[in-house]
């Protein structure tokens, strides 16, 4: 019993179904372990954590120059910016919006730079449900390829103060 002292010679090899279960469980753990490196090389969805140190003000300046040179439209006073396929796109998270609206083409790959100019935020792409952490001081680079067209809202899913639930953004993907 678990509440009384064990006999002096308590250490023995497991037997019977207990032994079988330990074997099965260990086998399953090996599968779990190998699945991740496998997907890293063969899978299309990986979080590599690529990031560069950046001052919030400098990141904001990069966003501004990206908007100035790539702006294609405006919606409710917010610029819609189209990145060159294969090129860089910038998204600034701040209390309580994602700036600007991004425009991508389906099947093209972009280097999407995300950072915050104030506190921590969460990048959550709907309705696909892809989520990444956004930190001030870190230029988080997602090498991303949209595989479907449409309007995709971005919402913040890291608590960032009283306006947290109003913090949104948008990505438009066309053919």
């Amino acid at each position: 019993m678990g509440i009384s002292a064990p006999p002096a010679d308590w250490f023995k090899a497991p037997s019977g179904t207990e032994r079988a279960w330990i074997g099965l469980a260990l086998l399953w753990c090996i599968v779990l372990t190998l699945a991740m490196p496998y997907w890293h090389f063969k899978g299309k969805q990986n979080s590599t954590g690529e990031a560069y140190a950046v001052e919030p003000a400098k990141f904001a300046a990069r966003v501004q120059s990206f908007v100035a040179s790539n702006k294609v439209d405006e919606k409710n006073g917010i610029p819609v910016v189209e990145a060159a396929p294969g090129g860089d796109a910038y998204l600034q998270a701040q209390m309580w919006t994602f700036y600007p609206i991004l425009k991508f083409r389906k099947g093209q790959t972009y280097r999407l730079h995300i950072s915050s100019t104030d506190i921590q935020h969460g990048f959550s792409l709907l309705p696909i449900n892809m989520n990444f952490q956004v930190l001030p001081g870190y230029d988080h680079v997602l090498t991303i390829t949209p595989t479907m067209t449409g309007d995709f809202p971005i919402i913040c899913n890291e608590f960032c103060g009283i306006g947290h639930h109003q913090m949104t953004g948008k990505i438009i993907v066309t053919e």
């Binding site: 779990l32 699945a35 991740m36 997907w39 890293h40 899978g43 969805q45 990986n46 979080s47 969460g122 959550s124 449900n129 892809m130 989520n131 990444f132 952490q133 899913n157 890291e158």
Partner: peptide, 12 residues
């Protein structure tokens, strides 16, 4: 807690 699957779960 699987590295890649967390992409479709983090903070949800």
């Amino acid at each position: 807690g699987t590295e890649q699957i967390n992409i479709i779960a983090h903070n949800t």
